[in-house]
């Protein structure tokens, strides 16, 4: 784990009309680290991620990536920095096979713009193998036939194939059974072990204690603390989520 964070947010805020979704949030994640992001419904987790994704840029605050100040104003900016986001709905094209999904939008081509199917198939297989994803029988089968965990694995593999430095997963285990949750969490751990930074949004405390190195708790749009699962109990985190101390009372105007 390096000393300076890969991604650092300083005092980011975001308003949707009268709703203050984020208020002066500080947040950071290091390379090789799994950072869990937790909080009750409406706490602002998705809004925080959408700011990093460039979907809803922050109103104020500073974003530093890899030591440089950056401004992310579109999903393209985000991808160019090496940030990949796996949304909860995954958005895979069911009618395409595993390889085609992993390369969608970034297909390899040969002469005359002809798709390099073999090159893509090989790269997809290598990526899946390097992540020890062993449950996918054939990379040439349509993703429609895959289970939730396998689909999640493909979405993650797709994200890491592009030399990303930071992978953000929005509730990757929400719809999965016990065995598949375990597979996905193992995969998350392997990403971090390969030196990537991972942000894991989850409502499941068990996930956190299983893979996360650090936990950031959001409450009503504010960061109420960063914890280390090793030295914290579940109760403490639950307490932070439901009653964490806030610097700013929502609904009150801040004094200048």
């Amino acid at each position: 784990m390096s000393d300076s964070p890969l991604l650092e947010l300083k005092g980011v805020s975001k308003n949707f009309g009268a709703v203050q979704a984020l208020y002066k949030v500080d947040f950071k994640v290091h390379a090789g680290q799994v950072m869990a992001l937790v909080g009750d419904n409406g706490a602002g987790k998705s809004t925080l991620i959408k700011g990093i994704a460039g979907i809803y840029p922050y109103d104020e605050g500073q974003v530093t990536f890899d030591g440089k100040d950056v401004s992310i104003n579109s999903p393209r900016d985000c991808a160019e920095l090496g940030i990949e986001i796996v949304y909860q709905d995954l958005a895979l094209a069911d009618n395409l096979d595993v390889v085609n999904n992993m390369f969608l939008g970034r297909e390899k081509t040969q002469r005359f713009g002809v798709l390099d199917e073999n090159g893509m198939e090989q790269a997809a297989k290598e990526t899946l193998e390097s992540l020890s994803v062993t449950t996918i029988r054939s990379v040439r089968q349509a993703v429609a036939g895959l289970s939730g965990g396998q689909r999640q694995a493909i979405a993650v593999a797709k994200a890491v194939m592009w030399n990303s430095k930071l992978v953000i997963l929005d509730e990757p285990t929400a719809a999965l059974g016990v065995a598949q949750t375990r597979q996905v969490l193992n995969l998350v751990r392997r990403l971090a072990d390969r030196g990537l930074a991972v942000i894991l949004i989850t409502h499941n405390l068990h996930d956190i204690f299983e893979v996360a190195d650090k936990v950031t708790v959001l409450r009503l749009g504010q960061n109420v603390g960063e914890y280390s699962p090793k030295t914290t109990t579940q109760q403490e985190i639950v307490h932070a989520i439901t009653a964490g101390e806030m610097t700013h009372v929502p609904g009150m105007q801040e004094e200048a």
């Binding site: 999903p75 393209r76 991808a79 949304y87 709905d89 958005a91 895979l92 094209a93 069911d94 009618n95 395409l96 085609n100 999904n101 969608l104 939008g105 970034r106 297909e107 081509t109 713009g113 002809v114 798709l115």
Partner: peptide, 21 residues
């Protein structure tokens, strides 16, 4: 071709296609 692949992607899941750029 890429174009053909995108035709299938748009038909299969337009949202996935959009997010893939």
């Amino acid at each position: 071709t890429r174009f053909g692949r995108y035709v299938y992607a748009v038909g299969g899941n337009p949202e996935a296609a959009r997010r893939a750029g």
